[in-house]
Nucleic acid binder design. Structure first.
Lengths: 339, 339
DNA sequence: ACGGCGAATGTAACCAGTTACATTATGCAG
DNA sequence: CTGCATAATGTAACTGGTTACATTCGCCGT
């Protein structure tokens, strides 16, 4: 008798995992009762409930998420595929996304794609494999396999940072083409004609749209750099080596930050000798010296909106409509009249 | 009869989900064979395999992650609890973490805590609920419930951005106390005596450690600001309104970026009139104007290291040892001799 | 005293996979 | 033409929860 108990204890101690049946046995009730204590405590008599809760504590039971998921068919998380986490831009989108999803009791899995459709589809597959209930992707450059994947899994998927009502999945974003034109418009209104354009890698389709908007728009010289402040510095050095513009238009604020620093390092005043224009409006851009003129992209609103839209789709099968958010010209101190 | 068929069709159309049994039936094989096609294709005859793969395609079968997880006991993802995503600092850690985890075929779920232990424990619980196999947390300020939770779930958990071999879980990080002293040392070596210290909210224990290191270290005046460039600007305005230092020590680079901009906006030269020192070494800090002197914290290496350590713990039950990473003084152009 | 009702609990089927073990088929040596 | 090893496949028992349905029990009204 004593031995059998000892054996039982030993078994309990080394069993890979305590399960609901163990708890039920320990509390002297059925599995259904234990399950009810978890899901509808009111339907269990208080005395029984306490006994069960005591058993849970004693056995340190942690319910298996997988087992629950298999019944409900829900995993309660969605995946976000972003080009990189190394920049403020996506951090801000994700911050708002995470907040919005949390409010809807969903979790967020992040994966980076480095703007490579092959990596994107591979990571998407991994997300589906671990049970993502929805996906968020950036831009509109996809591998065909990606569409195949989300079709098969019937996976709610939203494309962000872009806008195209005809795209195969709902888009929630802004007009990259128009934003670039607005930035250029601000400079031309100030009288600038010779303008250097600094932009990130064109493998990124949002960047490509911005560049395309400006092509054939006058006396512009285009320079591709890394999407970083370092890239901005290098871009300016390349620009000043030849073509002498009166303004530099950076198609991303991180590039603008580096560009502005380098312009000053070269002994030029901003904006007296050289205007610098950005595009994004990162939180820090207003607090650079001088404060950066830029186009405000509503990434916070976008993050929130995507969270709500995806939650509605996942939870209530409400497929969202494509949604276009406004950008806004923010004229600060880094741009001035053409000298 | 017609009605019953209609009903049947309806049933078929709305069948919740194609499962492995359906595939097996369609291919005319047993469930085991289908499972083998997925997990050890070599053990299935080529002709059979093709038949099964055809059935998978035809039925657009997507295996259930939950069902697989229930058998393997694996969900293949871990959770990271960070104070905020709104800053470059954690974006960089997460970027490296995500890369490292991907290499180990693990996914990363992120959750933000806003430096609130209550939120932290709530989000940790949510992560455990959805099946996280491990956790990454920042710093060492925890709710007691948190320890209770990871004890019960026996959840591999690593604390980052800090160092304390005595802490209840392994830490992988750097010496915040020492880093702050090193930053101060750089300024005092340059002859600075009257120094203003700008720091983020002290609810964050890494900030608290940095501040504590400097208290009682001479003629210092402390100012708490928001952890942002905007906070840096406001901090400088507060500093210059009274106490007139020869140097400003910012206990975070984002604050330093704002501070340096504001100092220049006030008509002071950096470093001729005012030295500005940071702490973090963000990727952009080297490309500000002037380039920011700072303490380099090895957050990229930390991210990688944590990924490997946590993967080893989760996959092979190798509990990692606490690990201290070196910081490094980076003297750039924003600090100079005391005038 | 008995029918009826509702509250509390139990039984067993179910979800969608994996896998130990059993079975069948094939090939080749003796 | 056995005999036996080996490959290919099938059967059924698992995993750990949820839940439809069944059962038991006590109480109330008539």
């Amino acid at each position: 008798m004593i031995e059998s108990r000892a054996e039982q204890v030993k078994k309990t101690a080394m069993r890979k995992r305590v399960n609901l049946r163990d708890v039920a046995a320990d509390a002297g009730v059925s599995v259904a009762t234990v399950s009810r204590v978890m899901n509808s405590p009111a339907s269990v008599a208080p005395a029984t409930r306490e006994r069960v809760e005591g058993a849970m504590r004693r056995l340190q039971w942690v319910p298996s998420a997988a087992a629950r998921a298999i019944n409900s068919g829900r995993t309660r998380f969605v995946g976000a595929l972003v080009p990189t986490l190394d920049s403020d831009i996506f951090a801000r989108v994700l911050a708002n996304l995470e907040q919005g999803l949390t409010a809807q009791r969903l979790s967020l899995v992040v994966a980076t794609t480095d703007d490579d459709p092959k990596i994107e589809v591979a990571k998407a597959r991994a997300l589906v494999d671990i049970g993502a209930e929805g996906l968020i992707v950036s831009g509109m450059t996809r591998s065909p396999d990606f569409h195949d994947l989300i079709d098969r899994a019937r996976l709610p998927t939203i494309a962000i940072s872009c806008h195209d009502p005809e795209y195969s999945m709902p888009t929630i974003g802004y007009d990259n083409h128009g934003a670039a034109l607005a930035a250029l418009g601000h400079l031309t209104e100030l009288g600038h004609r010779r303008i250097a354009v600094l932009h990130g890698p064109v493998r990124n389709d949002r960047t490509r749209l911005r560049v395309a908007a400006l092509q054939g728009q006058g006396d512009l010289s285009f320079h591709e750099t890394a999407l970083s402040t370092k890239g901005g510095c290098e871009g300016v050095r390349a620009v000043l080596a030849g073509y002498r513009p009166s303004a530099i238009l950076c198609l991303s604020d991180v590039i603008a930050a580096g560009a502005m620093a380098e312009v000053q390092r070269q002994g030029l005043r901003v904006p007296a000798d050289m205007s610098v224009m950005g595009l994004d409006d990162l939180p820090g851009s207003a607090h650079l010296y001088p404060a950066l003129s830029t186009i405000h992209l509503p990434v916070s609103r976008m993050g929130r909106g995507v969270a709500d839209a995806l939650a509605g789709w996942v939870e209530r099968d409400e497929k969202p409509h494509p949604h276009l958010l406004d950008f806004e010209l923010i004229a600060r101190a880094s741009t001035g009249p053409c000298p």
